[in-house]
Design a binder for these strands. Structure first.
Lengths: 208, 208
DNA sequence: GTCTATAGACCGATAGAC
DNA sequence: GTCTATCGGTCTATAGAC
């Protein structure tokens, strides 16, 4: 007998998992560079190097492919939040997270989904992994927002939910790609610029 | 003999023009509520109440339909800019324009086009009416931006082009629809809120 | 009679699903 | 690799206005 049948099963599972990861990475990239509507499942299968039928063994629909990519992004976000040093001030954490999402987008790794697609919305809402991740991230950010407001560092007149949406919106801000297209600034400069307009606004400030 | 054949021709032309306007208004609304990809030509024809073949008498392609809607928006923008009192300070003009675009979006009258669709981009760039309008509007806004920066009211460290993009981006800001979906605020409150975050940022300010 | 708009069938291509 | 639906775009025959 073999020493252990377990590794064999694990190996098979690992293969499956590896292929699924490859699919998701490809979907993530395609979603980032062309968006959901322009991405075709044939394209995904071709780029992963597997048959289209095999794709449907893993994911029952195009919407579920996109959802898997969003789950991956959400997990990365959760990992990033968890890795922030506890000593950091809430406002600095928020700035760090926004910078991270903008760097993701500038690097072409932020999937872009049409917010008006109803079937896609339904799939995302039905996806427990995605929803739990979203809620956890939102709760964490919401706590930091309220803390920063109590410290008087974030405008306390703004509803926390509006602040949260404003931060989220940086992940799909067209200003980033417009500036990138212009070619006048490095990605780091663009991130600095938009981070500045996000937190400090366009108006001239006495301080700073 | 009739008194004048001229009115007859004019009447016919008026009919044509009126129908074209009806088409463009419908396209504008559909683009605003579902976006370019989800909008179908059959849908447009049905909602206008004309045959699809008649649509193609006016516009040679779906892309041209969208371009016509964008030209209409651009003309409205030019009219709005021109109507601003000359006595108004540049910064106030900028704020007024941004508020206007946000009100347009909140009212469901701002067409939303995918920025990554190449054929649509090509059609828009080839459309002289659209491009001229865009350039004129950009020049006007650019002049106000530089004036406000010289007056020390707008952060002079920001490149004018980045400010311009940031203002344009308010016309497709997802924060608007997210807040609208929440139902906690009126459209006017939402516009005030986002206008505030745009110009003043999220940070707390001493003044204000 | 002539011209134009209409309705609706129709085609070809694409893409999702299996 | 096949099936099917959808959609952009075209075509034809009929009706009606002048």
């Amino acid at each position: 007998m073999m020493l252990s049948p377990a590794p064999k099963i694990s190996f098979k599972a690992q293969m499956l998992q590896a292929r699924e990861d490859a699919i998701i990475v490809t979907v993530n990239r395609l979603l980032a560079e062309k968006g959901f509507d322009a991405m075709t499942v044939d394209e995904v299968a071709a780029q992963v190097g597997i048959a289209k039928a095999s794709l449907y063994k893993h994911f029952p629909s195009k919407e579920d492919l996109a959802a898997a990519a969003m789950v991956r992004v959400m997990r990365r976000a959760q990992a990033y939040l968890a890795a922030l040093p506890g000593s950091m001030a809430p406002l600095d954490k928020l700035r760090a997270v926004v910078r991270w999402t903008m760097e993701l987008k500038l690097a072409g790794e932020m999937p872009s989904l049409p917010s008006q697609n109803s079937s896609l919305r339904a799939t995302l809402i039905a996806n427990a992994d995605y929803m739990n991740g979203l809620i956890e991230v939102s709760d964490q950010l919401g706590a930091w927002i309220e803390a920063a407001q109590e410290q008087g560092l974030l405008n306390p007149q703004l509803p926390a939910i509006a602040v949260l949406y404003t931060l989220y919106a940086r992940a799909c801000d067209p200003v980033l790609e417009f500036l990138q297209m212009g070619g006048q600034h490095t990605d780091a400069e663009i991130a600095d610029l938009v981070l500045s307009t996000c937190f400090d606004g366009l108006n001239a400030r006495q301080a700073r």
